Simulated assay, not measured.
Amino acid sequence: MDLAWSFSHLDPTIAETAYETLGAIRRGCPVSRSGELGGFVLVTGYDEIREAARAADRFSAYVDGLGAAAVVAEMREVVAPMFETDEAHHHQWRRLLQDFFTPQAAAAQEQYVRAVCRETLQELISHGAADLIRAYTRQVPPLVIGRVLGLTELERAWLSEHVRALYGAKTLTEAKQVGRMYADFLLERIHERRAHPTGDLLSAMVTAEVDGRAADDDELVKMTMLLVAAGHLTTADACATAILQLVEEPAMRERVSADPTALEAFVEELVRYEPAVAATGRTVTTETRLGGMPLSPGDRLLLAWGSANRDERVFDDGDIFRLDRERTTPQHLGWGSGEHRCLGRHLARVELRVMLTELLSALPGFRLQPGAEVRRTFGVIRGVASLPVQWERR
C-alpha cells in the first residue's frame, strides 16, 4: 500500500522496474490512492481498468494533467473532440473518422510504409552504426500519419521534423517555441481545408458537424496534435521496444525473421506485454465505486494498461513474453478497451510489421554497441530512450 501512495508514472527512476512496482501495488490493492501529481487514483487491475474504460457514464476521458492531456499541456483548457469526449459526442466523431482507419485503409498504406522504411534504412547501411530510435523508429511514423491526414510530401517532411523536435526538446522554452510553430503549421492546413476540402482525413475533421456545430480552430489543432502524437509516439516507441526485445532474445529474433506468421504473433504479444500507451487518465463524474473504493466527482484515475495485462487473476503467466499465447479470451488491453479503444490499431499493426521486417532484412546482424546501456522510459508512453547498435558495413 505504501508503494501506491508514493507512485508517479512520470518519475523516471521507476522506468526499469515499473511493472514489478505496479505488480506489487496491484497485488496489494488494484485500486489505490497516490499523493503524487496533486493526488490521483491508481488503477492496476484488469477488471477494474476494463470497467473504468467501459463506463463512460461514470468516468470521463477528459482529465486535467494526466494521460493524453499531458502530451499537449499547453492546450490543457481546450477539450479535443473525440479524444477527450464521451458517449454520443465521441461516437459521432469516431463514426466520421473511422473509414480512414479500417483494416482496408491500413493495408492501403503498406506500400508507402515499406518505401519510407527502405529509403530510411538505405541511408544507414553504409554507416555501420546508429541510434535506431533517432535514425529509424522516430523517422517513419510521423511521415505515415502525415500521409493519412492528407498532407503533401513536403508538408509531411516539415511535420516529421517539427514533431520530433517538439517531443525531443531539452527545455520548456524550446518546447514552447517549436510547439507554437507546429500549432501555426496545423492551423494553416486547417484553414486551407476549411476553404477547399479535399476529402482527406483533415478535411473530414474540419468539415464535420457534431451536435449541430463544427469544431473551432483550437479544438481542431489540439485534436490533430493528439492524432499525430497517437500515430507517431506510440508506434515509434512500440517499434523501439520490439527491437530491444529481439536484441535480447536472439532465438526469437531468428524465428520472427524467418516466419511472417511468427512476426504477427510477436507484434500482438508485444502490445500485451509492453503496451506503448502505458497510462491514460479518466475523471470521475458521479458518486461511484471501483474495486471497492468509494469515488467522488472530480477524482482523477490513472489506468495502468500494462499492469492489467499482467494481472495474475486473469493471466497465469502475464509476466512472460510468449509467442504462442492464445489470442482468444481473455483479451489483452494493450489497445485499450471501451469506446476509446485505439482507433489506429490496424495501421499500427501494419507499421510495426513492416518496420520490423525491413529492419531485419536490411541490417540482419545488428547488435548493441559495446558498452551500450539501454534505458527504458515510462510515463504516458512506454519506450526506450536510445538504441545504439552496430552492424557490418556493406
Rank of each mutant, 00 (worst) to 15 (best):
E48K: 05
F40K: 07
A24N: 11
R50D: 08
A56M: 06
T44D: 07
Y46G: 03
A24I: 06
E48A: 13
E36F: 00
V31Q: 03
G23F: 01
V31S: 05
L22V: 07
V41K: 07
P30E: 02
V43W: 06
R27P: 00
S32I: 04
A24W: 00
L22W: 07
A24T: 15
A53C: 13
G39M: 06
L42S: 12
V43D: 10
E36Y: 01
R50E: 14
G28S: 13
F40W: 13
G35Q: 10
G35W: 07
R26L: 05
P30W: 01
D57Y: 06
E51F: 12
R50V: 14
E51A: 15
A52V: 12
V41Y: 12
E51V: 09
A24F: 01
S34H: 04
D47R: 15
G39C: 10
A24V: 12
A52R: 09
E51M: 06
P30S: 11
R33P: 00
V43S: 08
A55C: 13
E36W: 00
I49W: 08
G38Q: 08
L37Q: 14
S32M: 06
G35M: 10
R27D: 02
A24L: 14
R26H: 10
I49H: 10
E36G: 01
G28D: 12
S34Q: 10
R27C: 00
R33F: 14
T44R: 04
G23S: 12
T44S: 14
V43A: 11
R27M: 02
G35C: 07
R50C: 12
G38C: 11
C29V: 01
G28N: 10
V43L: 08
A53F: 07
G38F: 06
G45Q: 05
L37F: 10
V31Y: 01
A53K: 02
A55L: 10
A52K: 11
G38H: 11
A55W: 12
A52H: 08
G39K: 07
T44Y: 03
L42P: 10
G35I: 00
S32H: 04
S32E: 06
V41N: 04
C29G: 13
Y46K: 02
A52Q: 12
S34K: 08
I25F: 01
A52T: 13
G45Y: 01
Y46V: 02
R33C: 05
R54P: 00
R33E: 11
L22R: 06
G39E: 09
E48R: 07
L37W: 06
R26S: 08
L22N: 11
I49L: 13
P30K: 00
T44H: 03
F40S: 05
F40E: 09
S34F: 02
C29E: 15
Y46E: 06
G38S: 11
G28F: 01
D57P: 04
A53E: 15
G23I: 01
G23T: 10
V31N: 04
A53V: 08
E48C: 04
I49N: 13
R26E: 07
G35A: 13
R54E: 14
E36N: 07
D57F: 04
R54N: 14
C29W: 00
G28K: 01
P30Y: 02
D57G: 14
T44W: 03
G35F: 08
L37E: 15
L22F: 09
A55V: 05
E36A: 15
V43P: 09
A53I: 05
G35V: 08
E51D: 13
E36V: 09
G28E: 10
R54Y: 03
V41Q: 06
V31H: 03
R50Y: 05
I49Q: 12
